[in-house]
Design a binder for these strands. Structure first.
Lengths: 198, 198
DNA sequence: TTAAATTTCGACCTGGGATTCGAATAAATT
DNA sequence: AATTTATTCGAATCCCAGGTCGAAATTTAA
């Protein structure tokens, strides 16, 4: 007989513990500043044990990223599924992301920014990233078509709003996270809805 | 007699050559992925020579950043100096930055993003950065006061527009850089000017 | 032309951190 | 209880990339 269900679960929990510890160290010391010893300490295992669960330091990093993106995506799917107007859905997506960001502070900044700084061999999470971007892109296009957004090249709009949102969630030193209301207000005040603003 | 003027200039040129090579490698391989050997090759010197001109790898990085920020700042000063309306000045500042970004592709993304990823001992360029942010912050505050921007918490606005601009210039895979007209249009269409819009 | 100063660089050196080893402990299976 | 399997970890290895050395080449100064 092979490993039991419970064993598998426990294994996964240990892996998650390691990833949590690793994230802390990565955020604190930077990707290369972080040593496996520190990660070991911070997650409560011996260094060699890390290698029982992960093949390498890089694989630890990869696991954090893939895990994180998968979570984002899964939390987003229902929001995307419900059939609202593009603009409404767009706002909801942003709000949902903001929620995620609040729930696990620091993780999302990490997810969005880190990959740029480093070359990994395999980057399966990029798939989620692309999927997310494609959805947003699509919402913007539809929204512009339906006159819910100003008539701007959606490609440009995407870059602008993408940046805007990133700034909203990640920039500056504000301690308190951006609230859902913030996102909603800002978007409604800033990017006027042509329909409403006749 | 000590070193001649010409010698000093040549020295500086060599330093710049090294910095240019280093930037290439940094962008390509990441901060830690980049080795001094590669930088040496890419700039056409022997490794040891790098250490004749710079004390350490970190100092090379620092030099790139300080140099870059100083250039941005100096190109910005005249724009800031001329007394236009806050909104106008704001747009001009963005456009000027976009110009810079086009002139030396990749450098500016580097300047804005890299520092987050790493801890340096001395970061004199942060002074320029803060100054720039302070100016923008001020423009937004004045602009909101004068009714040239929607009435939104300037702090929030700052984050949003800061992000927006970053997104505009850096996000996505678009090959062609954002043009000045892009910036102007987008801003005018997106962030409605309350004065005009009624 | 000679001496001094500047610049260049290949060949080490070295420290630190990733990875591996092998043995010990704990848990599951018979 | 004995045996097999899963888990843990300290210590040892190994490798790489930053940094140094000292000698050579080149340029400037006399």
């Amino acid at each position: 007989m092979s490993i039991s269900e419970r064993q598998l679960e426990e294994r996964k929990m240990r892996q998650e513990r390691i990833l949590a510890g690793a994230l802390t160290v990565f955020k604190d010391k930077g990707l290369e500043g972080a040593t496996m010893d520190e990660i070991a300490n911070s997650s409560g295992f011996g260094k060699a044990t890390l290698y029982y669960y992960f093949k390498s330091k890089e694989e630890v990093l990869s696991a954090i990223l893939e895990d994180g993106w998968q979570n984002i995506w899964e939390s987003l799917e229902p929001v995307i599924a419900e059939q609202e107007s593009p603009r409404k859905t767009f706002v909801n997506v942003l709000i949902k992301i903001a929620e995620n960001a609040q729930a696990r502070p620091g993780l999302f900044e990490f997810l969005f920014n880190v990959p740029k700084a480093i070359k990994l061999d395999k980057q399966p999470w990029k798939d989620y990233q692309h999927r997310l971007y494609a959805v947003i892109q699509g919402l913007l296009e539809d929204g512009v078509k339906k006159g819910e957004f100003p008539k701007v090249d959606p490609q440009l709009m995407f870059k602008a709003l993408g940046g805007l949102f990133m700034g909203l969630v990640f920039m500056g030193d504000r301690k308190e996270p951006v609230t859902n209301k913030d996102v909603e207000n800002l978007l409604n005040e800033l990017i006027t809805d042509p329909k409403i603003n006749n």
